[in-house]
């Protein structure tokens, strides 16, 4: 099977692109796929930290682009999972060290060898973003239920649509049922209504995510974590399974209930 290239992007920083990339990679690898993640955030790399592979970096993406090593040599294999690899970003260079056509070339080289290529996009809409969008078959836009993050997600979706890339799918991260109940947070329905793209995942706010990120052990490894489960569900949906969205609340379908009660200004 030729690999699908999935780019994880957001526009705004700090909404959870890297965490999402790491967890989806783990979840897909646990399903038995061969997965390569590429850190597209050159100069501000951190996917290696989240995956706990920081101390094993020898070569990076820029070394591959500039022919200082073969692609294989830059692929760090995860020790916990047989078929999970990371191509780290360079820390000491900047986004202009790589061009969109370099990214397309590297992904094409990988396509026949692996099942999934996940690319972690940097924040912003400049060169780094263009690099990571260029090879993508599927684009996952991550946002938080906050007005500013949704605004940036909207801008990103517009840019992706203008390049006629896609499909574009939405992940809403850090959803807090208690805040929604009090009417202090946009509901997933509000976000989907504004952005008008297909929803592929809702990740509940979960402090385990922070703990696991610091440990370099993504929550998708933990069977009990709600956020980990949500990431696993996204992985299943990516491969085409129909999985119902998890309940964030015990009392039935809170999403539709709350959405009816509370319509906040979309701004």
């Amino acid at each position: 099977m030729a690999a699908s290239v999935v780019t994880i992007t957001s526009g705004k920083g700090g909404v959870g692109k890297t965490t999402t990339t790491a967890n989806l990679a783990v979840a897909l690898a646990e399903e038995g796929f061969k997965v390569v993640c590429i850190d597209g955030d050159i100069g501000l790399r951190n996917l290696d930290v989240v995956l706990g592979l920081e101390n094993r970096i020898v070569y990076d993406l820029v070394d591959v682009v500039e022919n200082r090593c073969r692609l294989r040599q830059a692929m760090i294999r995860d020790k916990r999972l047989e078929e999970l690899y990371l191509i780290p970003a360079a820390q000491t260079r900047d986004k202009s060290s790589v061009s969109p056509s370099d990214m397309i070339r590297i992904c094409d080289e990988l396509r026949n060898e692996v099942d999934w290529i996940l690319i972690d996009s940097p924040a912003g809409i400049e060169r780094g973003f263009r690099n990571t969008i260029a090879p993508a078959d599927i684009i996952l836009v991550v946002t938080n239920p906050e007005v500013s993050a949704v605004r940036d997600a909207d801008r990103i979706i517009g840019l992706v649509e203008a390049e006629e890339k896609g499909p574009v799918k939405l992940i809403i991260n850090r959803v807090n049922p208690a805040l929604i109940k009090r009417g202090d947070m946009l509901t997933p329905d509000d976000v989907v209504e504004l952005l008008a793209i297909e929803l592929i995942g809702i990740i509940p706010d979960d402090e385990n995510v922070i703990i696991s990120t610091n440990r370099g052990q993504p929550v998708a490894f933990e069977a009990k974590s709600k956020a980990g489960q949500a990431f696993k569900n996204i992985a299943k949906r990516l491969k085409g399974e129909v999985v119902p969205f998890i309940q964030l609340d015990d009392k039935g379908d809170f999403l539709s209930k709350v959405a009816g009660l509370f319509k906040q200004g979309g701004d």
Binding site: V147, R151, D154, G158, L194, D267
Partner: peptide, 24 residues
């Protein structure tokens, strides 16, 4: 089409949008 954040149209003519004009 939907006008998303960051997009802009300026014209000396009348303007008709079939779709949403999002914040931004």
């Amino acid at each position: 089409r939907t006008m998303r954040a960051g997009s802009r149209v300026e014209t000396v003519d009348h303007l008709i949008v079939k779709g949403d004009v999002n914040p931004g």
